[in-house]
Design a binder for these strands. Structure first.
Lengths: 249, 249
DNA sequence: AAGTGGTCTAGACCACAAA
DNA sequence: TTGTGGTCTAGACCACTTT
């Protein structure tokens, strides 16, 4: 095939979407739809290149974008794999608790409650779902050693995690790996708004602190590979023992 | 030149550092040392390729890494430029204030004090400077409309910003563009620790709120292109009107 | 030894911006 | 029209992992 674009047509040129971007989207869609599941190995770059009728370099660039988005992981000599949202990864990515000025901290689950209910109008709007959406509401308290660390209230649309309530054992430490394993939903982005508030009676009781103590309140919207809202979450953190840590680049 | 590595030698292979990485480091160092200054255009990819005795593709990949680090900006048809830390960029990158659940907010400076003093042992340690380091201490209050928004205490080593105190007019809205323009220091990374605390008398007075009101306290370490610590900063934010916003990916 | 991703080169052509 | 970055291809070889 001569140099230049592989499938040059008028419509291609008008759309002006680079080939590697199209290929990347196709791959992302396949993964989103479960064609390749968590931890699974993708075909090698030359095979994919054949499938898409592009050069290996173009596939390579497409995979590079997926890798930077955290969708796949590539290991020299082994292959390209759909990222597995392990507990470790999920925690250190989306759970930003740390000792003041120091190391990140990994709390353990302590107690949890789950119920099914209708979403409010406001919640529906935030979730981007219309009408009578049903949601699971999970309230969970976490501990670090002897100390209560956080109280989280999570809201998940039932159609995303249909079997959540029938779960007999305790919920897993981190929910995102569970979403991925069970429902193929990959949490890749979270938007957070952080405020300082005084602990309500309920929060104070859960965290075993005096009511009125200042705590961090983090409001999160979690998004999947296609940027759909997967979860709403409001967490209260003890701030005397722990900080919220983030790196800006 | 035949395909394969351009300058294969035994030592190269032992070091095992990709060419594009070496080229990237060289370019970063040049920019750090002021060889190309803020806003300046770099030579085009082919010229750089000649200078470094590598192919254009290798230079291209190196520039790609610099771009993703925020060191350069590339514009099709125009060229590759050293990133200018404009007020806009600096603010929306490193100043994470937002309306609760909504749009980012850009506060204006209200008042400021600056003095020169010795750094404490602890500060020296955090700054990574030894002995009797002198620092500028700046305290600045910011407003959004009618409301006080934040009180920041900044610490900058004098040797990084030698002429800071002699500045007669008010400090610029954002300091990082000023650091870059005046001293060639490019702030690229900030590590932040966020806590909820009750406002001290001093903070309450500055923010015009009741003492004891919960406020966000953000402790920042700012790093430059070579990851040196450029600034320490502790900020208190009103949290009833504003939130700290961040996206995790 | 075989298979995978990683690096590097060389060259053609496209898209955009400014003269 | 010229010069810049952006895309795409083709092919060689390197480095790592597993068989």
């Amino acid at each position: 095939m001569p140099p230049g674009r592989a499938t040059d047509t008028v419509s291609d040129r008008l759309e002006a979407t680079p080939l590697y971007r199209k290929v990347g989207e196709l791959l992302a869609t396949r993964i989103d739809e479960g064609f390749w599941q968590a931890g699974e190995m993708l075909p090698n770059e030359f095979v994919l290149a054949d499938q898409f009728n592009v050069s290996q370099g173009t596939v390579r660039k497409a995979l590079g974008t997926l890798e930077s988005r955290g969708i796949v992981e590539r290991r020299q000599g082994r292959g390209t794999f759909v990222t597995t949202n392990t507990d470790e990864r999920s925690f250190y990515h989306f759970f930003r608790l740390a000792e003041p000025g120091g190391e990140r901290v990994k709390p353990d689950p302590h107690s949890e409650k789950i119920k099914r209910r209708k979403a409010t109008k406001h919640e529906q709007q935030q979730l981007g779902t219309a009408d009578n959406t049903e949601v699971f509401e999970i309230v969970r308290v976490r501990v670090v050693g002897e100390h209560r660390a956080s109280r989280e209230t999570m809201l998940i649309p039932c159609d995303i995690a249909p079997t959540l309530q029938s779960l007999k054992s305790k919920l897993p430490n981190s929910l995102y790996p569970y979403y991925q394993q069970q429902f193929g939903t990959m949490v890749l982005r979270a938007e957070e708004y952080i405020a300082a508030v005084t602990a309500s009676k309920i929060v104070a009781a859960a965290l075993q602190i005096e009511p009125g103590t200042p705590v961090l309140e983090v409001t999160r919207t979690a998004h999947d590979i296609k940027d759909r809202v997967v979860e709403l979450r409001v967490s209260q953190f003890r701030s005397d023992l722990f900080n919220y840590n983030v790196t800006l680049r």
